[in-house]
Design a protein around this nucleic acid. Structure first.
Lengths: 143, 143
DNA sequence: TATGCTTTTGAAAATCATTTTCATTTAGTC
DNA sequence: GACTAAATGAAAATGATTTTCAAAAGCATA
Protein backbone atom coordinates (compact mmCIF):
# COMPACT_ATOMS: atom_id res chain seq x y z
CA UNK A 1 0.00 0.00 0.00
CA UNK A 2 2.78 2.40 0.91
CA UNK A 3 4.67 1.31 -2.16
CA UNK A 4 1.64 2.01 -4.33
CA UNK A 5 1.35 5.48 -2.91
CA UNK A 6 4.98 6.15 -3.61
CA UNK A 7 4.51 4.99 -7.16
CA UNK A 8 1.43 7.14 -7.52
CA UNK A 9 3.33 10.17 -6.33
CA UNK A 10 6.23 9.41 -8.61
CA UNK A 11 3.89 9.18 -11.59
CA UNK A 12 2.38 12.50 -10.63
CA UNK A 13 5.82 14.03 -10.31
CA UNK A 14 6.96 12.58 -13.61
CA UNK A 15 3.83 13.81 -15.37
CA UNK A 16 4.45 17.26 -13.97
CA UNK A 17 8.07 17.21 -14.99
CA UNK A 18 9.29 17.41 -11.42
CA UNK A 19 12.71 16.11 -10.55
CA UNK A 20 13.10 13.32 -8.06
CA UNK A 21 14.95 14.48 -5.00
CA UNK A 22 16.25 12.90 -1.83
CA UNK A 23 14.28 15.40 0.27
CA UNK A 24 10.94 14.58 -1.29
CA UNK A 25 11.58 10.86 -0.93
CA UNK A 26 12.39 11.28 2.75
CA UNK A 27 9.43 13.52 3.44
CA UNK A 28 7.13 11.13 1.60
CA UNK A 29 8.41 8.16 3.60
CA UNK A 30 7.90 9.95 6.86
CA UNK A 31 4.50 11.30 5.89
CA UNK A 32 3.35 7.81 4.92
CA UNK A 33 4.59 6.45 8.24
CA UNK A 34 2.46 8.89 10.25
CA UNK A 35 -1.13 8.68 11.24
CA UNK A 36 -3.92 11.05 10.38
CA UNK A 37 -3.95 14.83 10.63
CA UNK A 38 -0.36 15.79 11.05
CA UNK A 39 0.47 19.48 11.04
CA UNK A 40 3.29 20.86 8.95
CA UNK A 41 5.24 21.75 12.04
CA UNK A 42 4.83 18.27 13.50
CA UNK A 43 5.97 16.65 10.29
CA UNK A 44 8.87 19.07 10.02
CA UNK A 45 10.06 18.12 13.49
CA UNK A 46 9.89 14.43 12.63
CA UNK A 47 11.81 15.04 9.44
CA UNK A 48 14.39 17.16 11.16
CA UNK A 49 15.06 14.58 13.85
CA UNK A 50 16.32 12.06 11.31
CA UNK A 51 17.44 14.55 8.67
CA UNK A 52 18.56 17.80 10.25
CA UNK A 53 19.54 19.25 6.90
CA UNK A 54 16.02 19.45 5.51
CA UNK A 55 14.47 22.88 5.79
CA UNK A 56 11.00 23.89 6.86
CA UNK A 57 10.19 25.55 3.58
CA UNK A 58 10.85 22.29 1.79
CA UNK A 59 8.39 20.52 4.04
CA UNK A 60 5.77 23.16 3.34
CA UNK A 61 6.43 22.97 -0.38
CA UNK A 62 6.39 19.20 -0.41
CA UNK A 63 3.16 18.83 1.52
CA UNK A 64 1.48 21.15 -0.94
CA UNK A 65 2.68 18.87 -3.69
CA UNK A 66 1.28 15.85 -1.89
CA UNK A 67 -2.08 17.56 -1.68
CA UNK A 68 -1.90 18.48 -5.34
CA UNK A 69 -1.06 14.92 -6.26
CA UNK A 70 -4.09 13.62 -4.39
CA UNK A 71 -2.01 11.79 -1.82
CA UNK A 72 -2.92 14.12 1.01
CA UNK A 73 -5.65 16.57 1.85
CA UNK A 74 -5.37 19.87 3.68
CA UNK A 75 -7.64 20.25 6.66
CA UNK A 76 -8.28 23.40 8.63
CA UNK A 77 -9.36 23.05 12.20
CA UNK A 78 -9.54 25.98 14.57
CA UNK A 79 -6.03 25.99 15.95
CA UNK A 80 -4.46 28.07 13.20
CA UNK A 81 -2.34 25.25 11.81
CA UNK A 82 -2.88 23.54 8.52
CA UNK A 83 -2.95 19.80 8.84
CA UNK A 84 -2.62 17.10 6.24
CA UNK A 85 -4.40 13.82 6.24
CA UNK A 86 -3.92 10.74 4.12
CA UNK A 87 -6.20 10.24 1.18
CA UNK A 88 -7.18 6.66 0.59
CA UNK A 89 -8.46 6.12 -2.93
CA UNK A 90 -12.17 5.47 -3.17
CA UNK A 91 -12.61 6.09 0.50
CA UNK A 92 -13.77 9.11 2.31
CA UNK A 93 -14.20 9.73 5.96
CA UNK A 94 -15.34 12.64 8.04
CA UNK A 95 -14.52 13.82 11.51
CA UNK A 96 -15.96 14.09 14.95
CA UNK A 97 -13.80 16.70 16.62
CA UNK A 98 -13.83 16.77 20.41
CA UNK A 99 -13.52 20.32 21.67
CA UNK A 100 -12.69 18.95 25.11
CA UNK A 101 -9.56 16.93 24.39
CA UNK A 102 -8.99 17.68 20.69
CA UNK A 103 -9.45 14.02 19.81
CA UNK A 104 -10.49 13.36 16.25
CA UNK A 105 -12.71 10.39 15.57
CA UNK A 106 -13.19 9.36 11.98
CA UNK A 107 -16.32 7.94 10.49
CA UNK A 108 -17.69 7.01 7.13
CA UNK A 109 -21.28 7.18 6.04
CA UNK A 110 -22.26 6.29 2.55
CA UNK A 111 -25.77 7.62 2.92
CA UNK A 112 -24.47 11.09 3.72
CA UNK A 113 -22.15 10.91 0.74
CA UNK A 114 -25.07 10.01 -1.51
CA UNK A 115 -27.26 12.75 -0.13
CA UNK A 116 -24.51 15.21 -0.93
CA UNK A 117 -24.52 14.03 -4.51
CA UNK A 118 -28.27 14.60 -4.67
CA UNK A 119 -27.89 18.10 -3.32
CA UNK A 120 -25.14 18.90 -5.78
CA UNK A 121 -27.26 17.58 -8.61
CA UNK A 122 -30.14 19.78 -7.56
CA UNK A 123 -27.89 22.84 -7.71
CA UNK A 124 -26.11 21.87 -10.91
CA UNK A 125 -22.94 21.68 -8.85
CA UNK A 126 -19.98 19.48 -9.71
CA UNK A 127 -18.39 18.01 -6.57
CA UNK A 128 -14.62 17.90 -6.28
CA UNK A 129 -14.36 17.16 -2.59
CA UNK A 130 -16.07 17.82 0.66
CA UNK A 131 -15.52 18.11 4.33
CA UNK A 132 -17.83 17.32 7.20
CA UNK A 133 -16.77 18.11 10.71
CA UNK A 134 -18.92 17.56 13.74
CA UNK A 135 -17.80 19.45 16.84
CA UNK A 136 -18.70 18.52 20.35
CA UNK A 137 -17.63 16.31 23.23
CA UNK A 138 -16.40 12.75 22.95
CA UNK A 139 -17.68 10.02 25.26
CA UNK A 140 -14.88 10.68 27.74
CA UNK A 141 -15.18 14.45 27.88
CA UNK A 142 -18.97 14.64 28.05
CA UNK A 143 -19.00 13.11 31.52
CA UNK B 1 -35.47 39.94 14.03
CA UNK B 2 -32.52 42.30 14.09
CA UNK B 3 -33.86 43.80 17.26
CA UNK B 4 -34.11 40.36 18.85
CA UNK B 5 -30.54 39.63 17.97
CA UNK B 6 -29.43 42.88 19.51
CA UNK B 7 -31.31 42.05 22.66
CA UNK B 8 -29.81 38.59 22.69
CA UNK B 9 -26.33 40.02 22.42
CA UNK B 10 -27.02 42.59 25.10
CA UNK B 11 -28.21 39.85 27.45
CA UNK B 12 -25.07 37.90 26.74
CA UNK B 13 -22.94 40.97 27.38
CA UNK B 14 -24.80 41.77 30.57
CA UNK B 15 -24.47 38.20 31.82
CA UNK B 16 -20.76 38.35 31.12
CA UNK B 17 -20.40 41.68 32.86
CA UNK B 18 -19.29 43.44 29.70
CA UNK B 19 -19.79 47.14 29.36
CA UNK B 20 -21.95 48.52 26.60
CA UNK B 21 -19.94 50.61 24.21
CA UNK B 22 -20.65 52.72 21.15
CA UNK B 23 -18.16 50.67 19.12
CA UNK B 24 -19.80 47.35 19.82
CA UNK B 25 -23.22 48.76 19.01
CA UNK B 26 -22.00 50.09 15.69
CA UNK B 27 -20.18 46.90 14.77
CA UNK B 28 -23.22 44.84 15.68
CA UNK B 29 -25.50 47.03 13.56
CA UNK B 30 -23.21 46.73 10.58
CA UNK B 31 -22.66 43.01 11.03
CA UNK B 32 -26.42 42.45 11.18
CA UNK B 33 -26.88 44.47 8.01
CA UNK B 34 -24.49 42.31 6.03
CA UNK B 35 -25.08 39.06 4.28
CA UNK B 36 -23.43 35.75 4.91
CA UNK B 37 -19.73 35.00 5.27
CA UNK B 38 -18.12 38.34 5.75
CA UNK B 39 -14.42 38.39 6.52
CA UNK B 40 -13.03 40.47 9.35
CA UNK B 41 -11.24 42.72 6.89
CA UNK B 42 -14.41 43.27 4.86
CA UNK B 43 -16.39 44.14 7.94
CA UNK B 44 -13.63 46.41 9.18
CA UNK B 45 -13.68 48.34 5.91
CA UNK B 46 -17.45 48.77 6.12
CA UNK B 47 -17.16 49.92 9.70
CA UNK B 48 -14.35 52.31 8.91
CA UNK B 49 -16.22 53.93 6.03
CA UNK B 50 -18.94 55.21 8.35
CA UNK B 51 -16.84 55.33 11.52
CA UNK B 52 -13.22 56.05 10.73
CA UNK B 53 -12.28 56.11 14.37
CA UNK B 54 -12.93 52.45 15.03
CA UNK B 55 -9.82 50.31 14.97
CA UNK B 56 -9.23 46.96 13.39
CA UNK B 57 -8.38 45.25 16.66
CA UNK B 58 -11.76 46.24 18.01
CA UNK B 59 -13.45 44.61 15.05
CA UNK B 60 -11.47 41.41 15.62
CA UNK B 61 -12.29 41.45 19.32
CA UNK B 62 -15.93 42.17 18.75
CA UNK B 63 -16.46 39.46 16.16
CA UNK B 64 -14.97 36.95 18.56
CA UNK B 65 -17.50 38.10 21.10
CA UNK B 66 -20.32 37.67 18.61
CA UNK B 67 -19.18 34.11 17.98
CA UNK B 68 -18.98 33.48 21.68
CA UNK B 69 -22.47 34.84 22.19
CA UNK B 70 -23.86 32.49 19.56
CA UNK B 71 -24.79 35.31 17.21
CA UNK B 72 -22.14 34.45 14.66
CA UNK B 73 -20.06 31.48 13.68
CA UNK B 74 -16.46 31.41 12.48
CA UNK B 75 -15.89 29.67 9.21
CA UNK B 76 -12.55 28.77 7.71
CA UNK B 77 -12.34 28.40 3.96
CA UNK B 78 -9.07 28.04 2.15
CA UNK B 79 -8.18 31.66 1.52
CA UNK B 80 -6.49 32.29 4.83
CA UNK B 81 -9.13 34.66 6.13
CA UNK B 82 -11.54 33.92 8.92
CA UNK B 83 -15.10 34.66 8.00
CA UNK B 84 -18.17 35.06 10.15
CA UNK B 85 -21.65 33.99 9.26
CA UNK B 86 -24.95 34.71 10.91
CA UNK B 87 -26.39 32.09 13.18
CA UNK B 88 -30.14 31.75 12.95
CA UNK B 89 -31.61 29.95 15.92
CA UNK B 90 -32.92 26.49 15.17
CA UNK B 91 -31.69 26.65 11.64
CA UNK B 92 -28.62 25.22 10.11
CA UNK B 93 -27.34 25.33 6.61
CA UNK B 94 -24.29 24.02 4.89
CA UNK B 95 -22.25 25.23 1.95
CA UNK B 96 -21.46 24.43 -1.62
CA UNK B 97 -18.24 26.32 -2.26
CA UNK B 98 -17.35 26.98 -5.89
CA UNK B 99 -13.61 26.83 -6.37
CA UNK B 100 -14.03 28.55 -9.74
CA UNK B 101 -15.68 31.82 -8.73
CA UNK B 102 -15.69 31.53 -4.91
CA UNK B 103 -19.48 31.63 -4.86
CA UNK B 104 -21.06 30.09 -1.79
CA UNK B 105 -24.40 28.38 -2.17
CA UNK B 106 -26.25 27.48 0.98
CA UNK B 107 -28.42 24.46 1.46
CA UNK B 108 -30.25 22.69 4.21
CA UNK B 109 -30.87 19.00 4.47
CA UNK B 110 -32.66 17.57 7.42
CA UNK B 111 -31.81 14.00 6.53
CA UNK B 112 -28.10 14.74 6.69
CA UNK B 113 -28.59 16.44 10.03
CA UNK B 114 -30.38 13.38 11.36
CA UNK B 115 -27.76 11.01 10.06
CA UNK B 116 -25.17 13.03 11.91
CA UNK B 117 -27.10 12.59 15.10
CA UNK B 118 -27.14 8.84 14.52
CA UNK B 119 -23.40 8.79 13.97
CA UNK B 120 -22.77 10.83 17.09
CA UNK B 121 -24.99 8.51 19.09
CA UNK B 122 -23.06 5.50 17.85
CA UNK B 123 -19.81 7.08 19.07
CA UNK B 124 -21.20 8.37 22.33
CA UNK B 125 -20.45 11.85 21.05
CA UNK B 126 -22.33 14.98 22.11
CA UNK B 127 -22.80 17.37 19.17
CA UNK B 128 -22.27 21.07 19.71
CA UNK B 129 -22.12 22.15 16.08
CA UNK B 130 -21.03 20.97 12.73
CA UNK B 131 -19.83 22.12 9.39
CA UNK B 132 -20.31 20.57 5.99
CA UNK B 133 -18.63 22.09 3.01
CA UNK B 134 -18.81 20.68 -0.48
CA UNK B 135 -16.16 21.98 -2.83
CA UNK B 136 -16.42 21.94 -6.60
CA UNK B 137 -17.74 23.94 -9.50
CA UNK B 138 -21.05 25.75 -9.63
CA UNK B 139 -23.35 25.48 -12.62
CA UNK B 140 -21.76 28.51 -14.28
CA UNK B 141 -18.14 27.52 -13.76
CA UNK B 142 -18.48 23.88 -14.75
CA UNK B 143 -19.22 24.79 -18.35
C1' DT C 1 -22.15 65.92 39.11
C1' DA C 2 -17.58 64.54 40.60
C1' DT C 3 -14.62 60.53 41.99
C1' DG C 4 -12.53 56.27 41.55
C1' DC C 5 -11.95 51.92 39.66
C1' DT C 6 -12.02 48.85 35.75
C1' DT C 7 -13.00 47.75 31.13
C1' DT C 8 -12.49 49.03 26.47
C1' DT C 9 -10.30 51.19 22.88
C1' DG C 10 -6.87 52.60 19.07
C1' DA C 11 -2.34 52.50 17.37
C1' DA C 12 1.54 50.27 17.08
C1' DA C 13 4.29 46.43 18.00
C1' DA C 14 4.49 41.57 18.40
C1' DT C 15 3.39 36.99 17.02
C1' DC C 16 2.81 33.01 14.33
C1' DA C 17 2.06 30.26 10.30
C1' DT C 18 3.19 30.39 5.78
C1' DT C 19 5.42 32.14 1.50
C1' DT C 20 8.96 34.25 -1.04
C1' DT C 21 13.62 35.47 -2.18
C1' DC C 22 17.94 34.36 -3.64
C1' DA C 23 22.37 32.31 -3.72
C1' DT C 24 23.83 27.65 -3.86
C1' DT C 25 23.28 22.87 -4.83
C1' DT C 26 21.56 19.17 -7.52
C1' DA C 27 19.06 16.30 -11.09
C1' DG C 28 18.59 15.21 -15.65
C1' DT C 29 20.42 15.84 -20.34
C1' DC C 30 23.82 16.40 -23.91
C1' DG D 1 32.15 16.01 -17.39
C1' DA D 2 29.50 20.28 -18.61
C1' DC D 3 25.23 22.69 -19.05
C1' DT D 4 20.63 24.28 -17.74
C1' DA D 5 16.70 24.55 -15.10
C1' DA D 6 14.61 23.00 -10.97
C1' DA D 7 15.00 22.30 -6.04
C1' DT D 8 16.83 23.47 -1.71
C1' DG D 9 17.98 25.95 2.81
C1' DA D 10 18.32 30.04 5.35
C1' DA D 11 16.72 34.17 6.03
C1' DA D 12 13.68 37.80 5.04
C1' DA D 13 9.06 39.02 3.85
C1' DT D 14 4.23 38.65 4.20
C1' DG D 15 -0.31 38.74 5.99
C1' DA D 16 -3.74 37.63 9.30
C1' DT D 17 -4.45 37.91 13.95
C1' DT D 18 -3.25 39.00 18.80
C1' DT D 19 -1.11 41.56 22.31
C1' DT D 20 0.59 45.63 24.58
C1' DC D 21 -0.07 49.82 26.73
C1' DA D 22 -1.38 54.45 27.51
C1' DA D 23 -5.46 57.07 27.03
C1' DA D 24 -10.49 57.20 26.99
C1' DA D 25 -14.90 55.80 28.48
C1' DG D 26 -18.44 53.17 31.25
C1' DC D 27 -20.45 52.37 35.55
C1' DA D 28 -20.97 52.43 40.41
C1' DT D 29 -20.89 55.28 44.28
C1' DA D 30 -20.43 59.32 46.99
Amino acid sequence: MILEKKKAFNSFAAAKGLRSTRQRDIILDIFLSTHQHISVEELYLKVKSSNPGIGQATVYRTLKLFAESGLAREILLHDGQTRYEHVVAGEHHDHLVCTGCNAIIEFEDETIENLQKDIALRHGFFIRSHKLEIYGLCSTCRI
